[in-house]
């Protein structure tokens, strides 16, 4: 009980020290907040991009271009074969005639196309694989199978860019982890330096405390609490920074989404993020204080 009481006393005393120097405390907290806000901001960004693109990431398609000399009847036969194959959700045939008609309508090259003697376009099988984009190996299998037909000119994966996009997102996530690690080190250094200064400022107090029989653990305790409090406040600051930034960006993101006809809305940081930030901040602050206190407190002895 008295053990708990002493810790509560240390905590309150540390909080009091921070409150008595509000400007200095604010600066430290803001610096830490910025450092912690960057990885959170990146994370929220990546999550939003994922959300926005989630709709069509499954829409991978395979276009099978047949050789131009393949007659339409053979193409119909191939379509039937394709539909019977495992791993194919749906398949349609775009005949050369239909393709030309559509191209004529959309491109505006009608007169130029009339000058052609033959239809230069091949028949195309448009296939949606059952696996979606989630199973690249299954899609690759299907592609190889289709490629092996003698009537087939080329097989093209329409979803290549989705895979690339997902790879970019994965890269961003990795970058984010790296940034979080480095900025975490930064937070430790900032707290460590602040605690070092604090130890110097309170040198007389530390000497007297040791003189009257205070143990190293007793002397260290308020500094550890100070570091942890800096971290906690820094985490809170980071959360507020990211939340406000997203709130400012939200209308612009919405406008952009509307031009794509999407109902996408920017998601702010979640409550879970707040928990993680506060936890990580507190831990990093504690570690920074522990490192600084370990280095500097041992050197202060009364009367020397």
């Amino acid at each position: 009980m008295s053990w708990l009481l002493r810790h509560v006393q240390s905590l309150l005393s540390s909080a009091g020290h921070l409150a008595r120097a509000p400007i200095a405390t604010l600066f430290t907290v803001v610096v830490m907040g910025m450092a912690l806000a960057l990885p959170l901001g990146l994370d929220v960004l990546v999550r939003n991009v994922r959300n926005a693109t989630g709709d069509f990431s499954g829409a991978i398609g395979i276009s099978v271009y047949l050789k131009t000399n393949v007659p339409e009847s053979r193409a119909q036969q191939l379509l039937k074969n394709t539909r019977e194959r495992n791993g194919v959700r749906s398949a349609t045939l775009i005949t050369a005639t239909a393709a030309l008609a559509q191209f004529r309508k959309q491109s505006g090259f009608g007169a130029a196309l009339d000058a052609l003697e033959d239809n230069p376009l091949p028949h195309v099988l448009a296939i949606t694989p059952a696996a979606g984009s989630s199973d690249p190996a299954a899609i690759e299998n299907l592609r190889r199978y289709l490629q092996s037909w003698p009537e087939v000119e080329t097989v093209q994966l329409d979803g290549d860019w989705v895979a690339r996009f997902n790879a970019i997102l994965a890269l961003l996530r990795r970058l984010l982890l790296l940034a979080a690690g480095l900025l975490g080190l930064g937070v430790v250094a900032v707290v460590g330096n602040t605690i070092r200064l604090e130890i110097q400022n309170r040198r007389a107090e530390i000497e007297v405390t040791k003189l009257v029989g205070g143990t190293n653990a007793f002397v260290r305790r308020p500094f550890l609490y100070t570091g942890a409090l800096y971290g906690l406040l820094g985490g809170l600051c980071a959360f507020v920074v990211v939340a406000v930034a997203l709130w400012l960006l939200a209308p612009f993101a919405q406008r952009l989404a509307q031009t794509y006809g999407s109902s996408f809305a920017l998601q702010g940081p979640a409550l879970r993020d707040l928990g993680i930030l506060l936890g990580a901040g507190t831990l990093l602050g504690w570690v920074g204080a522990w490192l600084a206190a370990g280095r500097h407190l041992a050197r202060i002895e009364p009367g020397t």
């Binding site: 002493r6 006393q9 007389a204 107090e205 007297v208 009257v212 205070g214 143990t215």
Partner: peptide
Amino acid sequence: RLLADRPVFDNVALPLIVAGSA
């Protein structure tokens, strides 16, 4: 060697606080 920012009571109490007295 009193602590200037603490009242008399806290200064005098310091040896008891570090010893963990009730």
